[in-house]
C-alpha cells in the first residue's frame, strides 16, 4: 500500500501519481492522509485501484472517476463523484450538494445524508443514500437509479427523464413531471440488487418508486405552466 499525506504533498502530486497508474499500474492500494477538506482530490482516475481517503474532502472528490474504488472516510464536499463513468465511490459521512451530478456510470454510496441536488442531471450512475437527500434531487435525471433510504426534500425528480427513483421515507414534494409508480417485480429485483451492491441492509418492499410521467417529453401548449 502507498500512503500520501496531503500536509506533506500537494493534491497535484497525488493526482499525478494516481493518473500515472493508468499508464502503468505499480500499486493497487492507496491511502490518503490528512485531506483536510482540500478540493479535487483523486479526480480523473482511470485504473482499477482503491483509494482510501482518511478524512473530509472538499469539492469534486473523485470527479469523473473511471474504474477506481474511492472511499472517503469522512464528509464530502460539493459534487463528489461528479460525472463518474465507472468504479465506485463511497462516502462514509455526509455529502454536500450535487453529489453524483451528471455521472454516467458506476456506483456512488453515501452512508450519511446527501444535500440538495443529489444526482442532478445523472446519466446512468447508480446512487444509494442511506440517509436523506435535499431538495431538487435528481433534477433532469436521465438514466440510472437513485435510492434514498431516508426522506427526500422538495421537488424530487423535477423534469425527470428515465432515472428510476426509490425512496423509503417521506417525499416532501415531487417536482414537475415526477410521479409515484407501481413497484413491480422487476423493480424489486433492481432495488434488491442495488442495495446488495451498496452493502445496505434494507427491505426493498418498504420502498416506493418514482419516475417520469413523460408529459414534458415533447413541447405542448397545455403544459406551459410546468416549463
Amino acid at each position: 500500500m502507498k500512503t500520501i499525506n496531503l500536509t506533506e504533498q500537494s493534491v497535484r502530486d497525488l493526482n499525478q501519481a494516481l493518473h500515472d497508474q493508468a499508464i502503468e499500474c505499480t500499486e493497487r492500494e492507496w491511502e490518503v492522509l490528512e485531506p483536510k477538506g482540500q478540493h479535487n482530490i483523486a479526480c480523473g482516475l482511470d485504473q482499477n485501484i482503491s483509494v482510501d481517503i482518511k478524512g473530509p474532502t472538499g469539492y469534486y472528490c473523485a470527479g469523473m472517476n473511471k474504474k477506481a474504488h474511492v472511499t472517503i472516510h469522512g464528509n464530502a464536499g460539493q459534487g463528489v463523484a461528479e460525472n463518474m463513468m465507472s468504479g465506485t465511490v463511497r462516502v462514509k459521512g455526509d455529502a454536500s450538494q450535487a453529489a453524483g451530478a451528471t455521472a454516467h456510470g458506476g456506483l456512488l454510496v453515501i452512508e450519511g445524508n446527501a444535500a440538495a441536488r443529489c444526482g442532478i442531471s445523472m446519466k446512468g450512475v447508480d446512487i444509494v443514500v442511506k440517509g436523506n437527500v435535499g431538495h431538487m434531487s435528481c433534477f433532469m435525471g436521465q438514466a440510472g437509479a437513485l435510492v434514498v433510504c431516508g426522506d427526500a426534500g422538495d421537488a424530487l425528480g423535477d423534469s425527470l427523464y428515465e432515472t428510476h427513483i426509490y425512496v423509503k421515507g417521506e417525499v416532501k414534494s415531487l417536482g414537475a413531471d415526477c410521479i409515484q409508480k407501481d413497484m413491480r417485480e422487476e423493480h424489486i429485483e433492481e432495488l434488491t440488487e442495488l442495495l446488495n451492491r451498496a452493502g445496505v441492509d434494507e427491505d426493498p418492499t418498504a420502498f416506493k418508486r418514482y419516475g417520469s410521467a413523460r408529459q414534458l417529453y415533447n413541447f405542448k401548449v397545455d403544459n406551459t405552466s410546468a416549463y
Binding site: V11, R12, N15, H39, N40, C43, G44, G58, Y59, Y60, G63, M64
Partner: peptide, 10 residues
C-alpha cells in the same frame, strides 16, 4: 474550483 478540477483531470 471547477476549473482546477478540469486542470487536474487533464
Amino acid at each position: 474550483i471547477k476549473i482546477q478540477e478540469l486542470r487536474e483531470i487533464t
